[in-house]
Computed example of a mutant assay.
Amino acid sequence: MKITQISVFIENESGRLHEVTGLLGNNNINIRALSLADTSDFGILRLIVNEPDKAYRLLRENEFTVGRTEVLAVEVPDNPGGLAGVLGTLSKASINVEYMYALVERSTDSAVMIFRFDDTSKAVDVLTASGYKLMKGEQIYEI
């Protein structure tokens, strides 16, 4: 149920984002979801890709500062209050959301959100016990 996210630290300068995406694209690695947070000096590009191990290796070989993190892909009801319901469940269990971002592809009648938690294993237990569907890595990588 846990999914590997690749995080790339890149300088906040013209062309650096293109270098990362070009390297991945030229090696047939498809980006499934992404988030970019920046400061004045650098950015953190978070990626869900179809081949996370290959992407990690390629980025390291090309001298990017890269890390791997476990995240969850959660199907969230695609209606008003759907996300609030998931967040309420997590709040009641004292699970902190460190960050989250949306996945572009839709799954059935739900939106898909990528979450990073302070306690991922506890989040898995709480969310599944509350009836939320967690997507497997293979499902996300093949979108």
Rank of each mutant, 00 (worst) to 15 (best):
M1T: 11
E11A: 11
N12M: 04
S14D: 06
G15P: 10
R16M: 13
L17E: 10
E19M: 08
E19I: 06
T21Q: 03
G22L: 05
G25L: 06
N26V: 03
N27L: 02
I29R: 01
I29L: 02
R32P: 04
A33L: 02
A33D: 05
A33I: 09
L36F: 11
D38F: 08
S40I: 14
D41S: 14
G43S: 15
I44D: 03
L45G: 06
R46T: 13
L47T: 05
V49E: 06
V49Y: 08
N50L: 10
N50S: 12
E51Y: 08
E51L: 08
P52A: 05
P52V: 04
D53H: 12
K54Q: 14
K54S: 13
Y56V: 06
L59E: 01
L59N: 00
L59Q: 01
E61H: 07
N62T: 07
E63C: 05
V66M: 02
R68S: 11
T69M: 03
V71R: 01
V71P: 01
A73C: 12
V76C: 02
D78G: 08
N79M: 13
N79S: 11
N79K: 15
P80A: 12
L83E: 10
L83K: 08
G85F: 03
L87V: 12
L87I: 12
T89A: 11
T89R: 05
L90A: 04
S91F: 09
S94E: 15
N96F: 05
V97T: 12
V97A: 05
V97R: 05
E98D: 14
E98C: 03
Y99N: 10
M100K: 03
A102W: 04
A102R: 05
L103D: 00
R106Y: 11
A111F: 06
A111H: 02
M113K: 09
M113L: 11
I114K: 00
F117S: 14
D119E: 14
K122C: 04
A123K: 01
A123V: 09
A123H: 00
T128P: 01
K133R: 15
M135K: 14
M135Y: 08
M135T: 06
G137T: 05
G137F: 05
G137D: 08
E138I: 09
Y141E: 15
I143S: 13
I143L: 15
